[in-house]
Design a protein around this nucleic acid. Structure first.
Lengths: 112, 112
DNA sequence: ATCCTCCTCAACCGATTGGTTGACGAAAAC
DNA sequence: GTTTTCGTCAACCAATCGGTTGAGGAGGAT
């Protein structure tokens, strides 16, 4: 099975699932409520929620027949940590490159 | 075709592609250099790079037969913006919930 | 007990994905 | 000009994905 970071990125690679997450950020909801706006079957949404759950983005409890879905926003940190790490590395590289170019500009015209 | 945000998330949903990005954060590299560490064909890596390119995460220039690959870190912002937006919404909701619970605790024991 | 509501599981389907191999293109190197 | 190096394109393959429909389970409501 894939690692969690892969599952989180993959889960959010689908627009419907991102929309579900966006709506769950506002409020918990049942599967039926979540499915209503889309013109796909309830089962399809249930599958999407399973993917989100396996990524750790969402949890489902039980309230009689209802299965309230709840967003687990902490998992976002996994992604932001990864992203920020490499963004920062890339930016540092740019800075070093800038510094190098600046030094080369300075020595321009020396030693004819 | 999918929107860019979907393509970026999907691109990073694959561990090999995340690894390529990680290595490109350190330095630009040619396709051959990038492919060397993995035990898959050069063509497979070329495909991965195409996915990264279509997501806007990477650009390829031309230097003789070489095709240096360069990381375009700005696209990360697309993701972090999306993530931060919904994380924040979710956190605000928690704060409101905490406040509500606090108020209920205060009125505990009143009106017997 | 029976029915109804809410939801999941299972089987299936076409499209996409990550991989393969083989052929080809562009630009040095000979 | 021929060869070699570096890389892409094309066709194919098994596996996964997003969707469907049909059956069924858990738990009120009657």
């Amino acid at each position: 099975m894939a690692d969690q970071l892969s599952r989180v990125f993959q889960a959010l690679g689908d627009p419907t699932r991102r929309d579900l997450v966006a709506r769950l950020a506002v409020a918990d909801a049942t599967v039926g409520e979540l499915a209503a706006p889309y013109d796909v079957s309830l089962q399809a949404i249930s599958k999407h929620l399973k993917v989100l759950e396996e990524a750790g983005l969402v949890s489902r409890s039980r309230d009689a027949q209802r299965r309230p879905v709840h967003l687990e926003a902490e998992v976002f940190d996994l992604m932001t940590k990864w992203i920020e790490r490499y963004r920062q590395e890339a930016e540092e590289r740019f800075s070093r490159l800038d510094a190098l170019l600046a030094r080369e500009d300075e020595s321009e015209g020396e030693a004819p």
